[in-house]
Amino acid sequence: MLRVSDLHAKVEEQEILKGVDLEVHAGEVHAVMGPNGSGKSTLAQVLAGKEDYEIAAGLLELDGEDLREMAPEERAHAGLFLAFQYPVEIPGVGNSYFLKAAVNANRKARGEPELDAMDFLQLLRERAELVDVDEALLRRPVNEGFSGGEKKRNEILQMAVLEPRLAVLDETDSGLDIDALKTVAAGVNALRSEDRAFVVITHYQRLLNYIVPDHVHVLLNGRIARSGGSELALELEEKGYAGLTKGSSGG
């Protein structure tokens, strides 16, 4: 589904991704772990099409289509979704109005009929319940004045409503208490299916107790330093990133 090969990306002449390889198939959950500054968020933003980053070299494909040629909205239409590490506050734009505009923009781009107000409301209520988002948040402007946990749950709500084929979660666990973390994980697990894939980017192993990944990758200094199964996350928890660096250079 997603193919990233020898990806080099830079911002303001500084190279941050220095040859990332990642292959994700339908139905899989991949965790990308790494310390601060390793390039995790850059990878997420590059996937979503942030224009601040320049792709210097490498391949970036979704279902065989070159993502590099696609605008952010086109990537969304193709089924890509990014849960932002720092969701943006948008004063004056109502949350449910925004979600309806997004759902219908995607449906229109895919040649599907747009949802009317009633059908959309039904979908929204159902998904809001799934990820435990209070209806009051739907009436407020997008993310404005939301708590950290509310913002992250709102990201998962958007994911649940948009039903992407590939969801990238950028540090969705950061700043969450354990209850909120469980809610977010339950939302993700409810959406796991054979034709949907997840890339879960995280600093800590904790989230992976609740969203159990099929593959774990360690991103260090702009490269995938190691890949393995879910046991790799536990090893990291034990040894830390420093220990892993030594391990990899020694082996």
């Binding site: 942030k50 605008a71 979704f81 932002f84 943006v88 505009a101 997004a102």
Partner: peptide, 27 residues
């Protein structure tokens, strides 16, 4: 216009022109 907000809206599938109009209208 807030470029971060524009990118956020577009990343959800909303076309550039519509995202632009939504933000101006919101203002």
């Amino acid at each position: 216009l807030d470029e971060e907000a524009l990118f956020y809206l577009r990343s959800r599938g909303i076309e550039r022109e519509q995202a632009h109009a939504m933000l101006v209208y919101a203002f």
